[in-house]
Simulated scan of single mutants.
Amino acid sequence: MEGLRDRTRRAVRAELAGRALELFTERGFDETTVDDIARAAGLSKRSFFRYFPAKEDVLFGGVEALAEQVAAEIAARPAGEGPWECLHAVLRDWEARINTQIEVMRLIEDTPALRTRLLQKRDEARGRIIEALTGRGVPELEADLAAAAAGAALDTVAREWLRTGGSADRTALTDRVFTMLRPAFLAPGTDRPS
Rank of each mutant, 00 (worst) to 15 (best):
M1Y: 12
M1E: 13
M1N: 11
M1Q: 12
M1D: 12
M1L: 12
E2A: 13
E2P: 10
E2T: 15
G3T: 14
G3A: 11
G3H: 11
L4Q: 14
L4Y: 13
L4A: 14
L4V: 13
R5Y: 11
D6Y: 09
D6C: 09
D6E: 15
R7I: 01
R7C: 04
T8F: 13
T8G: 08
T8C: 11
R9T: 14
R9V: 14
R9A: 14
R10G: 08
R10A: 15
R10I: 04
A11C: 08
A11V: 06
A11G: 12
A11M: 13
V12K: 09
V12D: 06
R13E: 15
R13F: 08
R13N: 05
A14K: 11
A14V: 09
A14L: 14
A14S: 14
A14C: 08
A14D: 14
E15N: 12
E15F: 05
E15D: 14
L16Y: 08
L16W: 04
L16A: 01
A17G: 14
A17C: 11
G18F: 05
G18K: 08
G18W: 07
G18R: 13
G18D: 12
R19A: 09
R19M: 07
A20P: 00
A20L: 05
L21P: 02
L21V: 00
L21N: 02
L21G: 03
E22M: 06
E22R: 14
E22S: 11
L23E: 03
L23G: 00
L23H: 05
L23Y: 02
L23P: 03
F24S: 03
T25N: 07
T25D: 09
T25V: 10
T25Y: 06
T25P: 01
E26V: 04
E26L: 13
R27F: 02
R27P: 03
R27N: 10
R27I: 00
G28W: 04
G28K: 05
F29D: 01
F29R: 02
E31S: 13
E31A: 15
E31D: 15
E31Y: 07
E31W: 08
T32N: 00
T32R: 02
T33N: 08
V34H: 04
V34K: 02
V34G: 02
D35W: 09
D35M: 08
D35Y: 10
D35Q: 13
D35E: 15
D36P: 10
D36S: 03
D36F: 04
D36L: 03
D36V: 03
I37G: 00
I37Y: 05
I37P: 03
A38L: 06
A38C: 07
A38N: 07
A38H: 04
R39F: 05
R39D: 10
R39Y: 07
A40F: 02
A40V: 00
A40W: 00
A41R: 00
A41Q: 07
A41N: 03
A41W: 03
G42M: 04
G42P: 11
G42D: 02
L43D: 04
L43W: 01
L43P: 06
L43F: 09
L43M: 10
S44C: 08
S44M: 02
S44P: 07
